[in-house]
């Protein structure tokens, strides 16, 4: 077993949380266990804290939350543009201020979230919003559509993003009265690894 360890300092809190990537042996997990883990992964990636910025080629981020009713396009006629950082129009960071590592975020309902990376949409190949579980599963199982990452590298990506104070960590601790993505970061990493060790099974036979 390979074991990685990272110390994640949660911004605005003295609390520290260890996040580990501890992959099971490839093939050591049953398909049924893998599919069950995928269902939990899908619960996370389809959650508004994640999917709202994993949008398609229209480059329009989404808003949702207790006071919004139906999920709706980001207010203010915002477009992330093909740059996915708003460079063609209004950069995301005009409102979503980029913090230095360890810097306390400004928090509160309806405030633009802040992380220690430049706010952005995920690459369009990573569209999750509006996609089915099977479609997202096929995408995440295909290194050509994950920036070359296999299942272990996906888990490492989650760990490393959290270590940089990025979007993944924020999704599980969004503040501002927003519902966090379910299960927690460590459980999500473990589920990705369980799904991967089972051969990245998808409901459509992947």
């Amino acid at each position: 077993m390979i074991r990685f360890l990272v110390l994640v300092l949660f911004t605005g809190s003295a609390a520290a949380q260890e996040v580990t990537v501890d992959p099971p042996e490839d093939g050591s997990v049953s398909r049924a266990e893998g599919l069950a883990a995928w269902e939990r992964v899908h619960d996370v990636v389809s959650h508004p804290r994640c999917a709202n910025c994993h949008v398609g080629a229209d480059n329009i981020p989404m808003w949702s939350g207790p006071s919004y009713g139906e999920t709706r396009p980001h207010g203010m006629f915002i477009s992330g543009g093909e740059s996915r950082i708003g460079a063609e129009f209004l950069p995301c960071s005009a409102c979503h201020v980029t913090l230095d590592a360890g810097q306390s975020r400004t928090d509160g309902p309806h405030r633009p979230p802040q992380v220690a990376l430049d706010w952005r949409l995920a690459p369009v190949d990573f569209q999750w919003f509006g996609r089915s579980s099977a479609e997202i599963c096929a995408q995440m199982a295909d290194p050509d559509r994950t920036g070359g990452r296999d299942w272990v590298a996906l888990a490492e990506h989650l760990r490393d993003d959290a270590g940089h104070g990025g979007f993944v960590k924020w999704g599980f601790d969004p503040g501002g009265g927003r519902a966090p993505a379910p299960y927690g970061l460590q459980a999500h990493i473990d589920d990705v690894l369980t799904w991967g060790a089972a051969g990245t099974p998808c409901e459509t036979g992947g």
Binding site: S93, C95, H96, V97, L99, Q103, S104
Partner: peptide, 13 residues
């Protein structure tokens, strides 16, 4: 040089 919302920028930033 970047248009920003001053209400969101902590002094430290």
């Amino acid at each position: 040089g970047m248009a920003m919302r001053a209400c969101q920028v902590p002094a430290a930033a």
